[in-house]
Simulated scan of single mutants.
Amino acid sequence: MTTETGGQRALVEEATKKSGLVWVDGQALWHVWVDGAMCVVGGGPGEQPLPALADGGAATVVVRSKDKGGRLVSWTADVALLPPGEQAWTAAVDELRGKRLNIPDLETVTERWARECQVFRLTPRGAPVESPGAMPDGSGAAVPVVTSATTRRPIPAGLPRLLLRRRGRRDTD
C-alpha cells in the first residue's frame, strides 16, 4: 500500500465535504465532515438505513465530483460507532442536525437520535484507492441481474397515425 500524501488527504477531505452524497460499500448516504472524518446518522425510524456500517471495521467510500457528477475519489475508512453523549458524538450530531433535510422534530432530534439511531465516524485510512490519474478502466456499475422481465416492446402499428391525427387537430385549434 502506498503512503498518503498531504495532497491526497486534502483531496479526500475537500471532495467529501463538497459532495452531498457518497457511496459507502455501494450504499448512497448523506453525511457531514467533522474533525477530519465523515460522520453519518441512521438506522432508526425515518432515517437512512446503515446496513453497510453495522459491523464496523472498514468500508470503502466513493465520492463523486460535485460539478461533473462522476466518481472523483475512493478511499478506505475505519468505521467506528460513536456512543451517545460522548464529545465526538455531540460534535457529529450538532453538524448532522444542521444538514438533515426535512427534519420533522428539530427540537427533539438529538434525543431521538441518541435513543433510536446510530452515529458512525468514518476516518480515512492511508492513500486513496482511486483518485484522478489512478482510476480503473471499467465503469464500476454493477452488472444487471438476468431476468425475463422487459419494458421494451414494439409500438402498436396504429400509434404513429393516431399521434399525427391528434397533432393535426391541435395545430388547427
Rank of each mutant, 00 (worst) to 15 (best):
E4D: 14
G6L: 08
Q8Y: 02
R9E: 05
E14K: 00
A15T: 00
A15F: 00
A15W: 00
A15E: 00
K18T: 06
G20L: 02
W23V: 09
A28K: 04
W30M: 11
H31K: 00
V34W: 00
D35T: 04
G36R: 09
C39L: 04
C39G: 05
V41M: 12
G44A: 10
Q48E: 01
Q48V: 11
A54H: 05
A59P: 14
A59E: 15
T60F: 11
V62F: 08
K66Q: 07
D67P: 10
D67S: 08
R71S: 12
W75T: 00
T76G: 14
T76R: 15
P84M: 08
T90H: 07
G98Q: 07
G98L: 08
K99D: 12
R100N: 08
I103P: 10
I103H: 10
I103D: 11
I103S: 12
I103G: 11
L106V: 14
L106D: 13
T108G: 10
R115K: 15
V119I: 14
F120M: 12
V129C: 14
M135N: 09
P136F: 15
G140Q: 12
A142M: 15
V143S: 14
V146L: 06
T147P: 09
S148A: 10
A149G: 06
T151K: 13
R152L: 10
R152P: 08
P154Q: 08
P156M: 02
P160D: 10
L164V: 08
R169Y: 12
